[in-house]
């Protein structure tokens, strides 16, 4: 195995938008590093001229015609919202 992978857990958690406790950070980094260590075995393979597989079947041009079908009634659209007002989703003030 190559050098043990190191995860910048703070950076990854921030990208994933998950708050972690210090304890979780320690636990997850060591677990993820051990998984990455295992995953490292892929480097044994030479994949130089191998095409990547993004889909199990190579199908192209799957589309629909431009026709409006149906919508959700607004009451259904917002019924699961943790917080809503005027049929819109309430979020903390966003500064852009």
């Amino acid at each position: 195995m190559a050098e043990a992978p190191h995860i910048d857990i703070d950076k990854v958690a921030e990208l994933a938008r998950i708050a972690l406790t210090e304890e979780e950070k320690t636990k997850f980094s060591s677990q993820l590093e051990s998984i990455l260590g295992y995953i490292d075995k892929l480097n044994e393979l030479d994949t130089t001229n191998v095409e990547p597989t993004a889909h199990p079947h190579s199908v192209e041009n799957v589309w629909r015609e431009d026709r409006a079908t149906s919508e959700l009634p607004t009451c259904e659209a917002v019924k699961n919202a943790p917080k809503q007002r005027q049929n819109m989703f309430v979020v903390p003030k966003v500064v852009e």
Partner: peptide, 20 residues
């Protein structure tokens, strides 16, 4: 007429969350 990846209408000036 409809959205890029679904059958809901495309449009401007509608009541909030009606084209969903």
């Amino acid at each position: 007429e409809s959205k890029i990846f679904s059958g809901s209408r495309s449009g401007y000036g509608y009541e909030p969350n009606t084209l969903v």
